[in-house]
């Protein structure tokens, strides 16, 4: 008996570990979705009408680039309120990693990508619904500085001052490659050796946007290059604008995942993100709307 129980226990652990692993960190257990509906219902209908749907709530899992952490959480909450019985759990990460996870069989319901390349690859392999890929937000680059600006950086040309400590994204992730293209453009307008001198100041190629923001907030480096939305999320930091003609516009794309178990809800979530309400919400977090 004991033996059988322990076998069962081990098997259960294995099964839950396998099923839950990719989303363990952020998946909302289905049960927590119900109270949202339940707590709102009684105030609207004091006569205690039984909840319309007794069926278990539908839990959507959404892959989101880390740059959208705050905005996506707000989008999810708003969507949940408008769609009782549906809960949205986000998994924040790097788009290339999440695309690789899709390839390896992860089945979220919606994929939001910070890089066009990863979305196109996913569409090519029919991991997402290729005909429903849409641009839902755009972002551009900005220079962030510690609040007291220790290196006295006043212009973009100052980024090439020798001895500076600069943080950029590793070129393999969208923020890093966008930074390099921006430097290419500035090279033309500032000085022919501008890019090389700026790159010589790079103290670290960080593996995400958030670590750059944190380390600049701590004052550990003199300047960092991130998205405008990240600067909006960290209002204590000083910023240096990059003119549009030298800036790089990054597009964020959304598509329902082909293997989603809840295609209707997945499409509804994508539609909500693209709706006027969703777009307005994204703007408050510093994103440019999807349609130029």
């Amino acid at each position: 008996m004991l033996c059988r129980l322990s076998v069962l226990f081990v098997l259960l652990t294995l099964v839950t570990a396998c099923g839950g692993a990719p989303s363990a960190s952020s998946t909302t257990p289905p049960a927590t979705g119900a109270p949202v509906a339940a707590t709102i219902e009684p105030t609207l209908a004091p006569t205690r009408v039984p909840p319309p749907t007794v069926a278990a709530p539908i839990a959507l899992t959404v892959f989101v680039p880390a740059a959208l952490t705050e905005a996506a959480t707000q989008l999810g909450t708003t969507f949940e309120v408008a769609n009782p019985g549906v809960t949205v759990a986000f998994e924040f990460g790097h788009s290339p990693t999440q695309r690789a996870q899709l390839e390896q069989g992860a089945t979220p319901d919606v994929f939001l990508s910070a890089s066009r390349k990863d979305m196109d690859l996913a569409a090519e392999q029919q991991l997402v619904l290729a005909d429903q890929v849409q641009v839902f937000a755009r972002n551009k680059l900005i220079v962030i500085l510690p609040p007291n600006n220790p290196a006295q950086i006043q212009t973009l040309a100052d980024l090439a001052k020798p001895g500076l400590r600069l943080l950029i994204g590793v070129p393999d992730i969208p923020i890093g490659s966008a930074t390099l293209s921006m430097l290419d453009k500035l090279n033309a307008s500032i000085a022919p050796d501008y890019k090389d001198r700026v790159l010589a100041n790079v103290a670290s190629q960080e593996v995400g946007v958030k670590p750059i923001v944190s380390k600049i907030s701590l004052g550990e480096a003199d300047a960092g290059i991130v998205y405008v939305s990240d600067a909006v999320a960290a209002p204590t930091l000083a910023t240096l604008e990059i003119p549009d003609e030298s800036n790089v516009i990054v597009v964020f794309t959304i598509a329902p995942v082909a293997a989603s178990a809840h295609p209707e809800e997945a499409a509804a979530f994508a539609a909500f993100v693209l709706s006027d309400e969703g777009q307005a919400l994204l703007t408050t977090y510093g994103f440019l709307p999807g349609a130029p």
């Binding site: 790097h94 290339p96 990693t97 690789a100 943080l167 590793v170 070129p171 393999d172 992730i173 790079v202 103290a203 670290s204 190629q205 960080e206 593996v207 670590p211 380390k215």
Partner: peptide, 26 residues
């Protein structure tokens, strides 16, 4: 990765290169 950052040849040790490589060059 937090304290020393990630810079090839200066602070990018093997585990960091694996982490970065997973996103670009598997």
């Amino acid at each position: 990765i937090i304290f020393a950052g990630n810079m090839e040849g200066r602070t990018q040790t093997m585990p960091l290169a694996i982490f970065v490589g997973f996103e670009s060059n598997l």
